[in-house]
Amino acid sequence: MGNNVLLVGSVPFDTVEDVMRNCSEALGPQLQAIPDGEVGERRSWVLRLSYQVFNGHDDLETVKRPQRVNGVEQLMPRSRDDVWLFRVKPGVETVRFGNPGYRLGYAKDAVNSYFVFKTLREKGLIPKGQRFQISMPMVNSVIRPLTFPEAADLARIRPGYEEAIAAELDAILAAIPHQDIAIQWDCAWEVSAVYNKPEGYPGEGDIETHTAPIGRLSKRLPADVALGFHFCFGTFGGWPRFAPADLGRAVDLVNAAVKATGRNVDWVHIPALDRSDDAFYAPLAKLDVGQARVYLGLIHSMDSFPQRLAAARKFLPDFGVAAYCGFGRIPPEEMPKILQDHKNALRLAGLQN
């Protein structure tokens, strides 16, 4: 299949069929894999896990929850200050999650979405050979200081959550043909942490802290399952959540993550700011990702797209294009323009097949 453009994951249409029909019609053969749009509550990325998984867990105490509106409970945070916070209850050394394979919802949704994918492919609406992309937030992007502020709690929760993700993977691999699957690890907190070492959280700014679970989980994937990465500067509360001076630390993390997998990686996605200066892109020359296709998140602010494209190509001559993140927090009515921006980006980059 094509590999010139990547859809990071979330697409704000109502159904999986809407997502796959619209995205395949717009970008079809250019895509290596097609996502299900992370429809419904997955549009909120990791925020849904607070009320679906953590709130009410026997071993966790809810410290803070979003403010009520007109006396009605709110499940979804409305700002960076209006969030869920949790801590481990006294005496609990390891938090574990029951109903393995289904507790987090990724496997259940993947199996349901795969039926739509397979049906549309049989009808010729998805090209043969294209994979179904399943995007899953990495462990430390879920179990992070932003949600679990007591530093000692991270080590009590992360192993159990990794175990739960592993069970979801096993359920996916058991239900869907491997040659049809592409797993994408989403890493946002990992990027933020290595750029902005959090005070009071020992080791949290170290790359090795974040590549260890990547390595363990990636090694569970059979060789015939495709693997990709999405690295992110964050979008909750507005994009970017933080704006680094350059891509240096991101490149270091990408290189280490790919190495940690111990296997072939099919793609890595790296975001880009509204910058066209050489200093921002220069670290791309140090990328060491084997045969992985690199996608740069240049599809935004399209008036300056050619300048950013030219600056990046000075240091990485060959790459595909993508947006800086998924579109789950974008109004659905903006999607036609966004898909057209993707087609325009392919044309401007000379990447049309």
Rank of each mutant, 00 (worst) to 15 (best):
V8F: 00
F13D: 08
F13K: 12
V16A: 12
V16C: 09
G28I: 01
E41M: 08
L47W: 08
Q52S: 13
F54D: 13
N55C: 14
N55H: 14
H57A: 08
D59V: 01
L60E: 09
K64F: 03
K64I: 03
K64P: 02
E73H: 12
L85E: 13
P100R: 01
Y106H: 13
F117G: 10
Q133M: 12
M138D: 10
I143M: 03
A151K: 12
A155F: 06
I157P: 05
G160Y: 06
A174H: 08
A175F: 05
I176S: 02
W185D: 00
G203T: 05
D206P: 06
I207G: 10
E208A: 15
A212S: 09
I214P: 07
R216K: 14
R220S: 11
D224E: 10
A226S: 14
L227G: 08
F233A: 08
W239P: 04
A245I: 10
R249N: 06
A250S: 14
V258N: 09
A260M: 05
G262D: 03
A272C: 15
D278E: 12
D288G: 05
A292V: 03
L298E: 02
S301Q: 11
M302F: 07
S304R: 11
P306Q: 00
D318V: 13
A323F: 11
F327E: 07
M335A: 12
M335D: 10
K337T: 15
Q340V: 06
Q340F: 06
D341A: 04
D341M: 11
H342F: 13
G350N: 01
N353T: 13
N353K: 13
